[in-house]
Write a protein that binds this DNA or RNA. Structure first.
Lengths: 179, 179, 179, 179
DNA sequence: TATGAATGAGGATTCATTCAT
DNA sequence: GATGAATGAATCCTCATTCAT
């Protein structure tokens, strides 16, 4: 699954052949098929595993009893940390276009849902600007994900963590309640 | 080239076979190869054509003699309008991962460069918050592009133009000079 | 037809595409098909034209009223001269494997037949060693053609004409009547 | 590799498609590509294998401690025997025009080099007529190879071995030292 | 469990040929 | 007569998948 994430991050889902994945993992193609029924299944398994790992952290952050501003900061920090530690896994699940069947798409929405719940709560408490939660998500994830994206592209220099403050400040400017 | 943009937007660059592109265009594979030496060349031609069209509009906007805030708004509006009118072309060039040789990558940077020049000017005039221009670009394009992205995903409802105000407000919150 | 001989000599019959032949001739593919019904027909026409031109010279040589030894020398000289002047045409008809239908194969045997008649005559006159005429042809053409062949290969340096004496001497050693 | 030699001998290098080779070998195209990276590689492998086999025999002959005349005879005999036993392999490597990259061309020169060394030695010992070794090779191989060539063409009747004496006599006439 | 050979469908590309202009 | 676009079959090659060992 690591090899899958790595290669699919670099060459795209279609561009990563089973043969290449197997070689990357140091086994033969046949061995891959003993553990995964098809490329599709392997792809889904690799995807879900990373998403799940991320989701746990995110859920913990969302449920912390600290001001929304600090939870947003934690969210950004944790995301960048993950990217710096596992750039391929991060790129694979969050920066690669996916074409998955519904069960896995549902899993892919875990983080978004957690985020939206957190936002709704904060908005009700008046600690966040009123704005359609989907739009909040859109703006937040747009700013957040663009940093790894531009690092991958070579436009920005890593590690991502160094941009935490600037990113948090930017999103907070967008989201904080108006005086 | 239209068919190419359409299919590559939907299935990715590798996922769009020449056969499928030809069928989409209503011709045979052989006919495609009369006009383009290879899939690579066809891909690059389709890409460059859309980028060039976008770049013209963007350049015109950047050089308008109006406050930066209004130019940013125009930029967003023009982008969303383009997406609403040519969702496939937009998705193809801006939301699809590309693996192009340097000459085309250079073309792909046209819009970014225009944007960065515009930002630098405004920052010198004090009408924009001081911030690394690459980061301004990152935040701006992050928020901007995420709207079409989420519309494609089904998370947000189109047309994109309806989000112009909210997007402009958000990016202005991030970028306006501090009092 | 010139372009055909040239390209088929260099790339083989299958390796010379109609498109390449047309370009070499400075016309388009369509134009080729106005004059020749098919590649097969073009191929045969180019082949026959060169063979016929060679056959005329050879027939004249064979019927000269001079000693067989001198006629053999003329045959060699004329062949090498033709090769030096039209290496592609020579290579095309004599050094390229052919897969032609019977009518053209018949034409291709013109020179062999002329040669064999000449040999039979000389043998009857006792001016040539008795030996199966087909074998005489085999030995003679083997030595003769190998010079252009090795020149093409780069093993021998041209022009071919410079080898006339040595080749004539060699074939005469093989063919002259024993004392 | 056998199937490759067979088909390339009959239809030429370009005329033998991978599909046809695979069918001839009783496997599918994919299977061919498991063992050979490309048609080019398969072609080279088939070529080198036959050349190597021939070269061994030739080297053994060249180094025998018998008069040059007898070594030439052995060379002819061994060649014809090989042709009679493996007409396709022989035709493929020696009677088919090749377009190979340098490493394989080098291998293809093995026999020529062996022959030329043998000739030089004999000339120094005075047991062979003084003549440029390349020309000796040209004449010798011209006469030698033309027998299989004409047999393939249908002009001469096989087996080739039956022509051994006549061929040896002919080449000896050309090459023996003058009294 | 793992291997590596094999398969058959599909990928990009070339080719001989046709045809409207 | 010539052009250049179009076609459909065939080319070389890759891929996901299967299976005997």
């Amino acid at each position: 699954m690591d090899a899958t994430a790595r290669l699919m991050a670099r060459r795209g889902v279609k561009g990563a052949s089973v043969r290449a994945i197997a070689r990357e993992a140091g086994v033969t193609e046949g061995a891959v098929y003993r553990h995964f029924a098809s490329k599709e299944v392997l792809y889904a398994a690799a995807y879900v595993r990373v998403i799940r790992e991320m989701a746990e952290v995110k859920k913990a952050i969302a449920s912390q009893q600290i001001p929304i501003e600090r939870r947003l900061r934690e969210w950004v920090r944790a995301s960048f940390e993950f990217f710096d530690r596992h750039p391929d896994a991060f790129t694979f699940v969050l920066l690669t276009p996916h074409d998955l069947p519904e069960p896995q798409r549902e899993v892919g929405r875990l983080n978004s849902n957690t985020f939206i719940e957190m936002v709704k709560d904060a908005q009700q408490g008046g600690t966040l600007k009123p704005m359609r939660p989907e739009l909040v998500l859109s703006h937040f994830s747009g700013v957040l994900l663009n940093v790894p994206r531009l690092i991958n592209e070579g436009t920005l220099e890593g590690p991502a963590l160094r941009y935490t403050d600037e990113v948090v400040e930017a999103v907070w400017d967008m989201l904080r309640p108006r005086p």
